[in-house]
């Protein structure tokens, strides 16, 4: 072991900066919603503890899933139906874990998108017990049984739990979703400066993982295919509020957002904010952009 003297690593992979990151108080309304989310979570946990206790005394340690099935080209699956799966339960098991088990053990044609298993790739937003959630981030112990798993509403189903995401991507790309500064520093090693406050301002908006849960939950988007929707507007917010871009660019962004199917369509129902798995205050970002738009219009009068 001569070359492997014990090492002191000072590596702090991820969290050193959370000190800074979470020092900013949340807006009161967002705080209130976060509190409600936490309460709901506490309720579910209490229920889960009770259920777990019940399960421990009984011998039924499986989870009952009812999963939406549809395949446009396979006989017997062309009519949508629900299949029942009974999956052995283990502590910590998520809806995604159960789906993977069901697919690998019972039916290899069970189809759903998934990749990272840790709520960062945004592939597995599903409609679980009547609400948009990430399959990988949803503990089975938090859910009433049978667990009903469906594809995201308000999107075309391609097969089983897979929906067509093209419309979502189109909306995301309609807001010129790329940084485009009025001017850049001359030297290739010269940084643009950004204040900590400004970085904090855009931080939550940059956490979007493009899962589509918000869009699926939005009544307005459901009734109006042209509406940009919460995720795309949040993406625009991310740049409009970034002080590095400059005022001309910001005005251009506000013009895009002010169009007929932009920010003014939002009726502040907060459904998007409720379902966002990354806790992004989407509705507030939209409201803030409405105020910015009004301000900039006044300026031009």
């Amino acid at each position: 072991m001569s070359t492997h003297v014990p090492e002191t690593e000072t590596e702090t992979d991820t969290e050193a900066e959370t000190e800074v990151e979470h020092s900013e108080p949340l807006a009161p309304a967002q705080e209130e919603r976060m509190r409600k989310k936490a309460e709901a979570r506490a309720d579910r946990e209490e229920r889960a503890r009770q259920e777990a206790a019940e399960r421990a005394t009984g011998d039924d340690d499986t989870v009952h899933l009812k999963v939406f099935r549809f395949d446009p080209e396979v006989e017997g699956k062309q009519e949508p139906r629900f299949d029942d799966f009974h999956v052995p339960y283990e502590k910590g098991m998520t809806v995604l874990d159960a789906l993977i088990y069901a697919r690998d053990t019972f039916d290899s044609s069970l189809t759903f998108r998934h990749s990272c298993r840790q709520a960062i790739c945004g592939s597995d937003a599903l409609f679980i017990n009547g609400r948009q959630r990430l399959g990988c981030k949803t503990q089975l112990s938090d859910l009433d049984q049978p667990v009903r798993v469906e594809p995201l509403p308000h999107a075309e189903v391609e097969k089983d739990l897979v929906v067509d995401m093209d419309h979502f991507y189109d909306q995301m790309e309609a807001v010129e979703p790329y940084f485009d500064a009025d001017e850049l520093p001359d030297g290739e090693l010269d940084e643009q400066r950004q204040t900590r406050e400004n970085r904090e301002k855009v931080k939550m908006s940059t956490r979007c993982i493009w899962c589509g849960a918000c869009m699926s939950s939005c009544n307005i988007a459901a009734g109006n295919n042209e509406y940009l929707g919460p995720a795309a507007i949040n993406k625009a917010y991310r740049f409009a509020m970034d002080e590095r871009e400059g005022t001309e660019r910001k005005q251009h962004r506000l013009n895009i957002l002010e169009q007929e199917n932009g920010v003014w369509r939002c009726q502040t129902q907060f459904s998007c904010t409720e379902v966002c798995p990354k806790d992004i205050p989407l509705t507030e970002h939209i409201q803030e952009l409405k105020r910015e738009a009004v301000k900039s219009n006044l300026k031009f009068w």
Binding site: T12, E17, E191, R199
Partner: peptide
């Protein structure tokens, strides 16, 4: 436009690693 963490002077943050 990458949203790097920032220092007080507005430059990108760096930290120690193993």
């Amino acid at each position: 436009g990458m949203a790097f963490s920032r220092e007080e002077d507005g430059r990108v943050s760096q930290r120690p690693f193993g």
